[in-house]
Computed example of a mutant assay.
Amino acid sequence: MADLEKKETKTGKEDPGGSGGYQMKISLGVIAMLVSATGMGLVPLFSRWATRTDMFNGALGFNAGDSIGALMAVGRMGMGVVAFLIIMVATHKVHVFKKLKLTPAIALGGLMIGMSLACYVTSTLLTTVSNAVLFIYIGPVICVLLARIFRKEPMSALQWACLGAVFIGMLFGEGLVGFGVGGAAFGVDFNLVPSTPEFPQKGLGDAFGIASGFFYGASMFFNGYRKDADTTARGVWNFIFAVIGAGAITIVLNALGANPGMENWALNVHFTTFNWIGAVLLWLVCGPLALGFLLVAGRNLPAADYGTIAYWEVPVALFVGLVVFGEPFTINTALGAILIIGGGAIPSIKGMVAGRKQKQQAEISENLAARLEEEAIKEDIR
């Protein structure tokens, strides 16, 4: 094990956050990313636990207003602020935080992720887990599209194909295209189902899910700026603005409602002890635990590896929906998952493979140069 750690330390790259030559530990990064993605994937479990009158029966409603999900996201992001402040003090980076210039990109990155997660948690309460988690993962493709529009970054044929795959995956996930019950013939049906017995506000939940994906992609886009910023110092600002973003969604929904007559949508909170346990678990497990390990993963993994492993959240959430809540996993859901996950992950996997090859070629060149140098020294001695 000591030899493995030594090898990983030597083969790592310097941390771009300005940590002074830190060397990545790949195995630690992989474990941290899996823990983080698992924590993220448990959001539907804890959000329904925290808010539903009956955790396993959505038709009975919530022990709060319908937009309680956005309020839960405020608590989760608030815990993120606390976690990053503790990490900042523990790693003696208070001076780095003070020196970091707050720019619009840093602020907007945090604001967008807060709005995304407020919409996502709300979506997990109003529609199926599979729809909520699949829709938020249109984010990486939205990021590529925004970079193409605003930064004029070129899009390869593969990226355009992935964009198309994600769009078609959304149609399968929503049931607008796909196979009928019992494997009936393939068909197209653009009649949206706004309500089901289990999810009376399913259409609204799907809309929140799609909004969460767009906000997630926008957050990734803005986080593409100021890569020189220290990870911890930037994280503090990100989560401060994430609280503001999630709070803004909560305030808007509470003040206006989704429809006329639905004012005071969020703050009619009458949680039981069981609900509060779920809320605390949501704030801790999906907050400091998942976000803290996310920081560790970001510090020890190349971006392509990081982005690819993050998709572990999807099967975790789908497992929760299938096993815990008994939601049907249809062939259309499966096809939608394959298209959305594939469309988002393939570019990352391609980048990861290319990075591995480049690294291997660099190591071969270094070893060859070292051997040639040794042979030259031997010849001089002779």
Rank of each mutant, 00 (worst) to 15 (best):
G175C: 10
R151S: 15
L294A: 05
P302Q: 06
L42R: 08
C143I: 00
F221V: 08
W49T: 06
T272Q: 07
K350R: 09
L281K: 03
E174N: 11
D228M: 00
L289E: 06
C143Q: 13
L4Q: 15
C162M: 15
G12S: 08
G18D: 11
N268Q: 12
L42H: 10
P197W: 09
N275Q: 09
L100R: 07
G203S: 08
P154I: 03
A362D: 14
K10F: 13
A290E: 11
G65C: 02
V243Q: 10
Q360Y: 10
P200E: 12
L145E: 13
S116L: 03
G209E: 07
T11N: 14
I142F: 12
G224D: 10
A229I: 01
T38C: 12
V188H: 07
A337K: 02
A70P: 04
K359L: 08
F215Q: 05
V94M: 04
F97L: 14
I86R: 02
L163W: 13
L85E: 12
R48H: 13
V296T: 12
G21D: 13
A345K: 00
F239W: 11
A248P: 01
M155F: 11
G336L: 00
G217Y: 05
K227R: 14
D230F: 03
A147R: 10
W237D: 06
A258Y: 14
L171A: 15
F215G: 08
P347H: 01
L60Y: 10
